[in-house]
Design a protein around this nucleic acid. Structure first.
Lengths: 335, 335
DNA sequence: ATGTGCGATGTAATCGTTTCCACGCGGGGA
DNA sequence: TCCCCGCGTGGAAACGATTACATCGCACAT
């Protein structure tokens, strides 16, 4: 493959001049410039980014570590991140942690080894050694959606608490009194926030949240199935289930179908994170929607601020409830 | 950040020795080796992959260019590719073309500039200059799912033709006679294959495929909506619609809901590519499923064969029909 | 005593860029 | 006439690794 030397030879100039032309530096005679450009075109020369980055110590690349690509919320987030990054002249390398600590750390290390300029992460697990090291190492870093307590890293997220309160009020108004929740991994900050908001909203309505109604999930479909199975093996099963992510809601539906139970007649269902398919499921599913695109854009804005030497603060947007038929009929959702 | 020199100094050896230890070369005294390893640990040294790749001329990285990450089929494919690559010691960088030629070429060029060892691509558009150049440049390359005619590049895909025939037979058996199809972009090889198989299956049943029943889509949700709108503005609308991907099927459902039409009572619906949500839509959607995971694994196997100097051939797997209620009831799907 | 061979290690070139510094040249002011 | 300055350009040193080749002991055979 042709290198800058070949271009220089072909144009009859030095490599320094070629480099100057390529990087748009001033102080090159117009005639020289065009000669170089011709040589570039003729040889189909493309600069070697490895060499360039090695020399300049910047890759114009951002790393994004997400907990699960198969979760549509994260897919959309990744997409938004890539768009925002590209428009700012950065590439993005995605690492999928698959909700596993070891995989997450593997990707963090790999990305750092590649000398990315900044790291965007939605941590799957708070116990990550690699992430703590990265944070203290001083590499530009921003959390998005999920975060790790005790690290001084800007966070871009949506606060779901008021939406959870609305959801509980909605369920209460529809006559539900035995509300259950399916959580994410214990260490998950978002899951904890959702559980906490759920519990205190229940308290406001004078409802209990028995331990049996707290199902321990892991944000994956299978755990939704398992927990739903547990719930309906109870002597007094819940009459409404709130899954703290959309994959677990899918698992619940699969289990319900196996058990021959119907939504919302036998039990109501709601999920955190709205996705297009929720409109067309049987029945359409009530969900809490996050401003996913904006989350991605804001996160990239914060990260590039850091990368380019500006300062960046945390951003909190808000989520909102979208009521559909899966929690029962009322005047708003009937159609 | 600590470099190999620092490690060498700290361990009291030369950089050559450090490099030898790091790369597991033999001929280093055990005692020296442990001293180096201690220095590595103490300085938290991590090799700079940029420098390494520059020198060795290999990145142990594969590029994957897909047409649309938001399409669950491709998300799953990407996931499978990453898994397979990682188990072989490669990283993957994903480029999302978003069904746009310019974006696709942008990613191909960016990946090549990064000196990836091999390129896996599911081309969004056949007119890609960047891809043709890449192909002739001799970089290891494999097509997956979609391909470009006339390029000598191994292809890993699933043949959907027999599944399409089964689908048509299924629809015919259920009494449908006015079958319509929504295609992908004109240049899309997979779409063309599906249309062709659909047309010839119709012919076998003595059914026509009028031009008005061929809706020109682009594999995106919005085009499904638009084409469905067109179909139902026809004096004699189809009684069954086959969308050649799942996103367009979603668009059809959205449009149908707006028009107040019901599936399968007013019209039947089937889609290419099965996704978990199809089980829970109203009604569950008949789909043609591809062996997505295996596609990803085989593609990586073929590509790494090429990268590592072995030869690789094309692979054709097969897709199969999964009948559900969206095409009407019969003894198999009733429950 | 000397040569030989081998194991362990060091020296330095190299990969493809960017960029600091020096150089030659021509014009304008003293 | 001489000096200085600025413009355009080239030479060469980095960046951080890998690796071919040289070197150095040392044991052993002769």
């Amino acid at each position: 493959m042709a290198g800058i030397k070949d271009v220089a030879a072909h144009a009859g100039v030095s490599v320094a001049t070629v480099s100057r032309v390529l990087n748009g530096h001033s102080g090159v005679r117009d005639e020289t410039r065009t000669r170089v450009l011709e040589a570039v075109a003729e040889l189909r020369y493309r600069p070697n980014t490895l060499a360039r980055s090695l020399r300049t110590d910047q890759t114009r690349t951002l790393g994004l570590v997400i907990s699960d690509v198969l979760n549509p919320f994260f897919t959309e987030l990744a997409r938004a991140v890539e768009d925002a990054a590209r428009s700012r002249g950065y590439s993005v390398i995605i690492g999928n942690a698959d909700e596993q600590l070891t995989l997450q750390d593997h990707h963090v290390r790999t990305l750092l080894d590649r000398r990315i300029d900044g790291l965007l992460v939605s941590p799957a697990d708070g116990q990550s050694l690699a992430l703590r090291e990265a944070a203290v190492s001083g590499i530009p870093m921003v959390f998005v959606d999920r975060w790790i307590e005790g690290l001084d890293v800007p966070l871009v997220r949506a606060d779901g608490r008021s939406a959870v309160r609305s959801l509980v009020a909605h369920l209460y108004a529809l006559g539900h009194r035995r509300l259950a929740i399916i959580t994410g991994p214990v260490a998950s900050t978002t899951s904890n926030e959702r559980v906490h908001a759920f519990r205190s909203a229940l308290r406001e309505h004078g409802l209990p949240l028995p331990a049996a109604y707290i199902g321990q999930g892991d944000f994956q479909t299978a755990s939704g199935r398992r927990v739903a199975g547990d719930f309906f093996a109870l002597p007094e099963p819940p009459d409404a289930v709130f899954a703290t992510d959309n994959l677990m809601a899918l698992g619940v539906m699969e289990q319900l179908r196996m058990l021959g139970l119907r939504v919302p007649d036998d039990v109501s269902l709601a999920a955190f994170d709205d996705i297009p398919w929720f409109l067309h499921t049987d029945p359409p599913i009530t969900a809490i929607a996050q401003p996913t695109q904006e989350l991605g854009h804001r996160a990239v804005a914060a990260l590039t601020d850091l990368v380019e030497g500006r300062s960046a603060g945390s951003v909190t947007l808000s989520a909102h409830l979208i009521a559909r038929r899966s929690c029962g009929e009322d005047e708003r959702t009937r159609r």
